[in-house]
Design a protein around this nucleic acid. Sequence first.
DNA 1: ATCGTTCCCTACCACTTGGTAAGGAGAGAG
DNA 2: CTCTCTCCTTACCAAGTGGTAGGGAACGAT
Lengths: 193, 193
Amino acid sequence: METRQRILAAALRLFAERGFYGASMDQIARELDLTKQALIHHFGTKEKLYGAVLVAISERLMTEAIQPTEVESASAFADAVSRIYLRTLQHREDTLLLMRELLDNRRRAAQAGTWYLKPFLDGLADLLRRDPNWQEEDEASIFTHVYQVLGAINYFAVSTATLENMYSVEHVEDMQECFPERLRKLAMGGVDT
Amino acid sequence: METRQRILAAALRLFAERGFYGASMDQIARELDLTKQALIHHFGTKEKLYGAVLVAISERLMTEAIQPTEVESASAFADAVSRIYLRTLQHREDTLLLMRELLDNRRRAAQAGTWYLKPFLDGLADLLRRDPNWQEEDEASIFTHVYQVLGAINYFAVSTATLENMYSVEHVEDMQECFPERLRKLAMGGVDT
DNA sequence: ATCGTTCCCTACCACTTGGTAAGGAGAGAG
DNA sequence: CTCTCTCCTTACCAAGTGGTAGGGAACGAT
């Protein structure tokens, strides 16, 4: 029973790092001192294993990221965004894999895994919708703002390794330090003057 | 001579759509009614072909995205961002592949292709640095702001297909319509009140 | 002791991968 | 006509892919 969890963890790591096609069943199995047939025994096919990893990610996302009993205040959205930022950095592998899933979606469109994000997005939009400063805005504006802020977070979370190579580790640490403050301004800003 | 360009175009499409491991030489070749050995004849190996695609992308990015003779005004950065947004939507395949490259960077770290983005980022940061509203801010804040805005653009550009499936084509069209206006507020906002 | 179940292994398979070797069609040069 | 060079072909290969078949070890239940 515990083997399933170990497999899921290793699969997440490798799928996030190398993508669905870049990671092979054999590699994942070797990482755990198993054979790939152990994975097949537990999950049936590679696709199903990948699906199980996605389900695990979305469950984490749903239980941790959105607090349904969010206090209704002018900064409710900004607060939620701050929490999501911290969580995103903490679960960077989840973020990496979800980003890959976003890119691969054209082919995998009809499959499961994708719509797990929908309630998450809708929840955030709802938070913003109840913000007094956003009462005047239309639906498209609200949703676009949510997505822009989310994009800023995820893109950065996925870029740190590259940025460290491109500049320096210290440079990225500086960015990480002032990121929440700047992110808050992004999240709050945008209402008509 | 013209074959090289055709190969590069097809390779860009498939690499962007399916990733490096997801796209095979054979698929790319069949798309052009050639055999994979034609590609090998022109580019040597798959890695080199991929590298050539990256070089082509970065050249497009350098010549089109940053206008060195940008007018120095309070909105110079926001103007540049607007242009980059339009260009990003126009060259969505380039954006897709650069995003994939960002994700794969851990493995490909030492290789070329990555640092092409550096002058682009630095140029944008420089634009913001000369903005009178940003004179007080420190380097990390400036760069973080640049990266957040860029993240909002790229994440959205890469998400449209998924969003269309998750909601509707009309929903995404609405977002695209109000995106530039909201993006401008993101880019301008963020200075201390 | 024996049966059944869970969990994982070895052995094997068809297929695809990137890449090599060698040769041919076409064109221009002498 | 022939030599050469560019561009691309067919034929082939070793390695790796996901997946099947079947067996064996451990263990609890009867």
